[in-house]
Simulated scan of single mutants.
Amino acid sequence: MSSAVVLKPPVLSFKDTGLSVTDGITGNGIWDVASEINWEFSLDQGATWTRGTGSSFEVTGDGAKIIWVRSWDDAGNKSEIVRVNCVLDTTAPAALGIAGQTEGVTNSLKLSGIEPGARWEYSLDEQRSWAPGQCSALGILGNSLSRIWLRQMDVAGNASDAQAFDLQSPALVAHEASGNPLQPSVLMPGLQTYLIHGVVVRGDADYVTWDIPKGQKVLSVKLVQYLSEDAIAFYALQRNKVFDAGVDVSRMLVYGHMGPSDLGRNVLANVSKSQLGEGAMTLWFQQTGPSPTQYAIEVVLAPAD
């Protein structure tokens, strides 16, 4: 009596496009199949089977999916069934609601209509690149940005329509950051994502301070825009409500040069967590050369570990 032929089952994979790559929620219905022989798939738990061609098949229709795949040969042998579950979501979320208001010298963009589990993103370069925000508002202090684009990204990775918001609206305040290290401009408290922006040139430094509340930490400080003929500017951060360190680098938390090559780099990445918690922090940003330099720096706060 001949023994049963055991076929190797196919390998099934898909691209999880969501904010998490392990949650099984995707906006892409294409499934890849790696099989040494023929294969087939079922979307109704084996009631019917569809013969596969090539190396992929497409699942359509939003909702939860139960997918079975197996190999087969011309003699009627079949492999074990590979079973997977996923949720297909190809529907883009609605556009964000955006309301601007001013407190002190900080403009605040309040965002509404964010779907559960979704995140909001902003763009400073006319939608060529996007950065994620925290919480449901964006604090902005400065006088160089003219507009910002905002959208939301749902858990499946679908993006809403992007909306442009005019930062030169008469309802908002354009504020040139203080040039006095002992009287820096103050970011309004209560938010978690901030943008500091301005134009600096030799002899015109910017000083901005913010408070890190109890139970929070500063997660990152990043250069997110830099427009200048001069590829080098200077920055420093001090743990204080003013910048009174002068040029004593031993009193600075971090310091150094910033330019196009530093875009997106978190300057606090190697700073001890004990230095990132509750208290004040002040930024010094300066261009020592004669070329005007337009910049934007993102500051993100987050719950302490």
Score class of each variant (00 low, 15 high):
Met281Lys: 03
Ala75Met: 13
Arg70Gly: 05
Trp149Arg: 12
Asn240His: 12
Ala118Glu: 09
Lys110Trp: 00
Leu172Lys: 01
Thr50Trp: 02
Gly157Asn: 08
Asp305Tyr: 02
Asp74Ala: 15
Val186Ile: 05
Gly142Leu: 10
Trp120Arg: 01
Ser136Glu: 04
Thr60Gln: 10
Gly139Gln: 05
Val242Thr: 05
Trp31Ala: 12
Thr90Glu: 10
Trp49Asn: 12
Asp89Trp: 03
Gly113Phe: 02
Val271Gly: 07
Pro93Arg: 05
Ala304Arg: 13
Ser220Asp: 14
Glu36Tyr: 11
Glu40Phe: 11
Gly259Arg: 04
Ala171Asn: 07
Gly18Ala: 10
Val21Asn: 13
Gln238Gly: 02
Val221Thr: 08
Val201Tyr: 03
Ala236Val: 00
Tyr255Ile: 00
Leu283Gln: 03
Gln134Pro: 04
Thr288Val: 11
Leu191Gly: 13
Ala131Asn: 06
Ala164Gly: 06
Gln168Thr: 15
Ala118Arg: 00
Gln238Met: 09
Arg151Asp: 03
Arg128Met: 03
Gln45Ala: 13
Ile81Ala: 07
Pro116Asn: 02
Ala34Val: 15
Gln183Asn: 13
Ala171Met: 07
Val59Ala: 11
Ser291Leu: 06
His175Leu: 00
Phe243Ala: 08
Glu115Ala: 03
Ile67Glu: 05
Val208Ile: 06
Pro170Ala: 11
Ile297Ser: 05
Val242Trp: 01
Phe243Thr: 04
Ser228Asn: 01
Val271Thr: 14
Met153Phe: 08
Gly279Asp: 02
Asn158Phe: 10
Arg128Cys: 02
Tyr207Asp: 03
Ala4Tyr: 00
Thr293Pro: 00
Trp149Glu: 09
Val200Asp: 02
Thr102Ser: 12
Trp31Lys: 12
Arg128Leu: 13
Lys15Gly: 06
Thr91Leu: 03
Ser160Ile: 09
Ser20Arg: 15
His175Thr: 04
Trp149Met: 09
Ile81Thr: 11
Ser169Glu: 11
Gly97Arg: 01
Leu7His: 00
Ile67Asp: 08
Ile148Leu: 14
Val155Gln: 08
Val249Lys: 08
Gly133Tyr: 09
Ser55Asn: 15
Glu229Arg: 07
Leu191Gln: 14
Ala131Ile: 14
Gln168Ser: 13
